[in-house]
Simulated scan of single mutants.
Amino acid sequence: MKKVGILVGREKSFPEAIIKTINERGHGEVVAEMIKVGGIPLNQEKRYDIIIDRISHEVPYYRAMLKRMALEGTYIINNPFWWSADDKFFNYSLASKLGVAIPKTVLLPQHSYIPDISSESLRNLEFPIDWEGIADYVGFPAFLKPHDGGGWKMVTKVNSIEQLLYHYNQTGTRCMVLQEAIEYEKFVRCYCIGQKKVLIMPYDPTKPYLSGQQYMNIENYLSPELSARVEEDVIKICHALGYDINTVEFAIKDGIPYAIDFMNPAPDAELASVGEFNHNWFVNAVAEFVFEKLSGEIKQPEYRWLSLLNGNDSTVQKKKLNAKKEKTKRKETTKKSKTKKKGE
Score class of each variant (00 low, 15 high):
residue 286 V to P: 01
residue 106 V to Y: 04
residue 299 K to N: 03
residue 76 I to P: 02
residue 25 R to E: 13
residue 116 D to E: 14
residue 119 S to W: 06
residue 62 Y to C: 13
residue 282 F to S: 02
residue 2 K to R: 14
residue 30 V to H: 04
residue 21 T to L: 08
residue 333 T to N: 03
residue 168 Y to V: 08
residue 40 I to L: 14
residue 92 Y to V: 07
residue 311 G to I: 08
residue 51 I to T: 10
residue 74 T to Y: 10
residue 74 T to Q: 11
residue 248 V to I: 14
residue 202 P to A: 10
residue 34 M to S: 09
residue 206 T to D: 13
residue 143 F to T: 07
residue 186 K to I: 07
residue 20 K to N: 13
residue 107 L to G: 04
residue 144 L to A: 07
residue 92 Y to K: 13
residue 237 I to L: 10
residue 204 D to G: 11
residue 312 N to A: 02
residue 238 C to H: 11
residue 20 K to H: 13
residue 330 R to G: 00
residue 197 K to V: 13
residue 55 I to H: 07
residue 226 L to S: 06
residue 79 N to T: 05
residue 309 L to D: 02
residue 293 K to R: 15
residue 254 D to Y: 02
residue 227 S to T: 08
residue 305 W to Y: 15
residue 86 D to I: 11
residue 308 L to V: 08
residue 110 Q to H: 05
residue 57 H to L: 14
residue 207 K to D: 04
residue 180 E to M: 12
residue 236 K to L: 15
residue 139 G to L: 10
residue 286 V to A: 03
residue 302 E to K: 04
residue 112 S to N: 11
residue 306 L to D: 01
residue 322 N to G: 00
residue 258 Y to N: 11
residue 186 K to A: 12
residue 19 I to E: 07
residue 200 I to Y: 04
residue 321 L to I: 02
residue 198 V to T: 12
residue 131 W to K: 04
residue 209 Y to S: 06
residue 170 Q to P: 00
residue 113 Y to R: 04
residue 244 D to M: 12
residue 160 S to M: 08
